[in-house]
């Protein structure tokens, strides 16, 4: 695709490398393998949420319900403890099925009611938020689900399961985007919805599919987060709404759709976690943290050039 896009994705990766090198030189503890692995584990949560978000955004939409779905998964799973399911795999499958269905409902709303995805997913988020308070109240819910604990803390061939999961999701996402008809349809829809539909693109199926995928990814991220924390509470997913969108945008994907790749989003996710870690290292106050974060997004947007106004 265009040179500009390559440029933006490359830019993201270059910034990541530069930050890691600089931080490693300034702060000896930073470049230790253990610390970097920890950063990647954190980045994998954002990265997995942002995988679904990337698909939705490239197709010309946006999913503002991911945070609520993450929280939903983290709270609903502990409640799905059954004697016939000692491994916890059944609960994991059920939770993922439910979150995929919620994403699917987003898609149905966008397709059938023709409500703008921004508004529809915002509404979904609000409804889920109310439902969660009813279910969980203000308290945290702990889990002993072995499958989830393994996902959040286990390792496979020495690699943390979170990173393994991310690798799998990344491979699937990249394949869907660049190797399937669905992926091409997404680029077409995001570039010009009307022209794509008139060219016979199955818009309804594609939109439904990406919203369901986003629901699945958010649910999976919620489970990983639950496994790492061992308890779920209302608000656990909050940081990942803006995080997922920021990762997508920092990775060079156009927020207006039609242009981008998940390769960039991976860089964006790592970049985001690294910046957060660095801000914590320099001991900035929450205010400065937010300002640095917002300023960085805006700065990178201004550098990487104009888009059509929206």
């Amino acid at each position: 695709m265009s040179g500009l896009l390559r440029h933006r994705v490359t830019l993201g990766w270059l910034v990541v490398v530069a930050l890691w090198v600089a931080a490693g030189l300034l702060k000896p503890g930073f470049a230790k393998i253990g610390h970097l692995r920890y950063l990647l584990e954190l980045a994998s949560i954002t990265g997995i949420v942002a995988a679904g978000q990337t698909l939705v955004v490239i197709g010309g939409g946006i999913d503002l319900s991911v945070a609520a779905i993450i929280t939903f998964a983290a709270i609903i799973l502990p409640l799905l403890t059954f004697p016939f399911d000692p491994s916890g795999m059944g609960a994991v499958a059920m939770t993922l099925a439910i979150t995929t269905a919620i994403g699917g409902l987003n898609g149905i709303g966008v397709v059938l009611l023709r409500v703008h995805p921004l508004i529809l997913t915002l509404a979904t988020a609000t409804i889920l938020q109310g439902a969660l308070i009813l279910i969980a109240g203000g308290s945290a819910i702990s889990t002993v689900n072995p499958a989830v604990t393994f996902l959040g803390n286990g390792a496979l061939f020495g690699l943390p399961m979170t990173i393994v999961t991310w690798l799998v999701i990344a491979a699937v996402t990249l394949f869907v985007l660049h190797g399937t008809v669905l992926g091409s349809w997404l680029f077409a829809l995001g570039t010009n919805d009307r022209a794509a539909r008139l060219a016979g693109v199955g818009a309804g199926q594609a939109i439904l599919a990406v919203h369901a995928a986003s629901g699945f990814c958010a649910g999976l991220a919620g489970l990983l987060l639950l496994g790492m924390n061992r308890q779920g509470y209302v608000g656990i997913g909050e940081p990942y709404l803006l995080g997922s969108i920021a990762a997508v945008v920092l990775g060079g994907t156009s927020i207006l759709g039609g242009r981008g790749t998940y390769l960039g989003t991976i860089a964006g996710s790592i970049l985001l976690v690294t910046i957060t870690a660095l801000i914590t290292v320099v001991n900035a106050s929450p205010g400065w943290r937010a300002i640095l974060f917002g300023g960085l997004i805006l700065g990178l947007l201004l550098i990487s050039g104009r888009e059509r106004s929206g």
């Binding site: 205010g287 300002i291 104009r306």
Partner: peptide
């Protein structure tokens, strides 16, 4: 938004951090 042709959604999202951060600086 008007002069750089950047999409409002992402500019206001970033601004929400800048403005929210400024509020936290005034009063943590």
């Amino acid at each position: 938004v008007a002069l750089f042709g950047l999409p409002a959604i992402i500019v206001t999202l970033a601004s929400s951090f800048l403005i929210g951060g400024a509020a936290l600086l005034v009063m943590p």
